[in-house]
Amino acid sequence: MVEVQNLHIRYKEQKDFALHDINLNVEKGELFGLIGPDGAGKTSLFRILATLLLPTSGRASVMGLDVVKDIYAIRRKLGYMPGRFSLYQDLSVEENLNFFATLFETTVEENYDLVKDIYIQLEPFKKRKAGQLSGGMKQKLALCCALIHKPELLLLDEPTTGVDTVSRKEFWDMLGKLKKTGLTILVSTPYMDEASRCDRVALIQNGKILSVDTPKGIIDSFPYPLFQIKSKEMAKLHKDMIESKLLHSAHIFGEWNHLVFNDGNTMEQLIDYLSLKGHTNIVWKEIAAGIEDCFIERMRDL
């Protein structure tokens, strides 16, 4: 559905590649996640796939069509939701939807079943100007507009950035439903916890793809035993652990520190060290790695 080969992009007046040697394959019907921090190159890749940006070198095709040569054929069959809200703020919900439907030479009625679940939530506000909607509602409207012409491939560029946790969950539930209709969805996000909702995930950083795997594959491939630990003074604990030189890595996850030992070092050594430093109420446990642990570990390797 999406094929990317040796894709590079370098912006004018910049020395480094914004995207460097990207290779990617997304299968039909997949919900594919592109995960990486801000500035990793997610939006650049999406804009190339959406025919808004020309690659410096390399090839990319979506739905079997070349993103440079078959621009108009692609646009007819592609749904794209930019990271920034890009609908007309001074047009109403209804008017925005109708406008984009007509540009695709279709009508809202014709493809209503596809957007029904989402549009029902917007219906009470259909006369309201898009600019006056809440953040979550804006996202839903944007998704409706991207779906209104029954696309084969949906590109969502950071749809959940700046959206509250409940709306984020709802949004992913909607994507799950859409996937069931056979739609291929490529979605980017800076939130690692969302990766588990995808069929496969590509991790992207500094314009390079670090790995592509299923969420389970990523977790299974975590190479070290992982521990979590907490004590009374969390900030000091983290600092002391790093100074102990016993650890390969230590990261704060909420109330816990996740840590991996250097070869040969053990938890007993660390507890002794921390006791010397005056820590009390130390609680620890060996745990299975989550997807975030895996990403952080992979980014360290870079």
Partner: peptide
């Protein structure tokens, strides 16, 4: 400036 041209540009409009 508002970015609305992005959404227009991905439609098949010439």
């Amino acid at each position: 400036e508002l970015g609305t041209i992005e959404q227009i540009n991905v439609t098949p409009i010439k």
